[in-house]
C-alpha cells in the first residue's frame, strides 16, 4: 500500500479536480444555449436516409467517425488475436454435456439471433443499430463458448480475419466508390442511401459480433514469445 501522505495527496488531487470541474460545469450551464445544431440536424434529417437522428449522425453526417471507430475495434481485435497463438481457440475445460443446458441453449440461441436481427432493423427509426446488434451476436457467441458448443470459425485463420474486416471493408469501399463517382469521400448517392446504410449496418453487425467474440475468446495461453532485441 502507498504511504499515507501519498494517499492524502491523491485524495486532494481528486477533490480539487471534482470541485473545479463541477464549478466549470455549473458556470457553463448558466450560459445561454449556443447551439443550433439540433435544429440543423432536424432540417437535414430527411435527406439522411434514416429516420432516427442518432443513426443519421452516426452513419451519415459523421460517418467518418464511425468508420474510424470500426477501425479502432479491428485494431483491438488484431492485437487480441496476435496474442492467441494456439491452434484451436476452443477451451476443452469448458465443454459440457449437460442436457438441460443444451436444451435451454436450443431455445436461447435462436431467440438471441432473432433479437440481434431486430436490433439491427430497429436502428433505422428507433434506438438500435449495428453495434447493439453486434454486441448481441457476440453475447450469443459467448454463451455458446461458455457452454462448450464448438465455434470452428473462430480459429485464428483466414476466415476469422476476413470476418473481422468484412464490415469495415464494405464501409471503406462505399467511401471510395462515392469519391470515384465524383462526389466527396463517404457521400452516399441520394437514391441508394437507405440501401447502402442498411447493407453497411448488416455487415458491420457481423464483423462487430466476431470482433467482440474474438476478443473474448483470445485466450493468451501459449509459450511462444519474441525475445527482446539483443537478447537472443
Amino acid at each position: 500500500m502507498r504511504s499515507p501522505a501519498a494517499r492524502i495527496g491523491m485524495l486532494l488531487l481528486a477533490l480539487m479536480l471534482t470541485a473545479l470541474l463541477g464549478r466549470s460545469v455549473w458556470q457553463l450551464s448558466m450560459l445561454e444555449p449556443a447551439s443550433d445544431l439540433p435544429r440543423q440536424l432536424q432540417d437535414k434529417l430527411a435527406a439522411s436516409g434514416v429516420e432516427h437522428p442518432v443513426t443519421a449522425v452516426l452513419l451519415n453526417f459523421r460517418s467518418y467517425d464511425t468508420l474510424l471507430e470500426i477501425a479502432v475495434l479491428v485494431i483491438a481485435a488484431m492485437a487480441g488475436i496476435s496474442m492467441a497463438r494456439t491452434r484451436s481457440l476452443e477451451d476443452p475445460e469448458l465443454r459440457t454435456s449437460d442436457t438441460l443446458l443444451r436444451a435451454l441453449l436450443r431455445w436461447l440461441v435462436p431467440l438471441m439471433l432473432l433479437l440481434a436481427g431486430y436490433l439491427l432493423w430497429a436502428g433505422a427509426d428507433r434506438p438500435g443499430g449495428a453495434f447493439q446488434a453486434g454486441a448481441m451476436l457476440a453475447a450469443t457467441g459467448v454463451l455458446m463458448r461458455l457452454t462448450g458448443l464448438p465455434l470452428d470459425f473462430l480459429r485464428p485463420g483466414i476466415l476469422l480475419r476476413i470476418g473481422l474486416v468484412l464490415g469495415f471493408a464494405l464501409f471503406l469501399l462505399v467511401g471510395l466508390a462515392s469519391a470515384i463517382a465524383g462526389d466527396v469521400f463517404l457521400a452516399y448517392p441520394r437514391e441508394f442511401v437507405k440501401g447502402l446504410i442498411l447493407s453497411i449496418e448488416t455487415l458491420l453487425t457481423l464483423s462487430i459480433g466476431m470482433i467482440l467474440l474474438a476478443l473474448f475468446v483470445a485466450a493468451p495461453v501459449n509459450d511462444a514469445s519474441e525475445p527482446e532485441e539483443g537478447e537472443k
Binding site: D65, L68, A71, I75, S225
Partner: peptide
C-alpha cells in the same frame, strides 16, 4: 471529436505494435 477518434486510432495501433509478440 474526430481528432479524439484519430488519437485513439493512433494509440491503440501503437500499443499493439509495442506489445506485438512481446515478452
Amino acid at each position: 471529436f474526430n481528432l479524439y477518434v484519430g488519437l485513439e486510432l493512433i494509440t491503440l495501433s501503437a500499443v499493439g505494435l509495442v506489445a506485438l509478440g512481446g515478452q
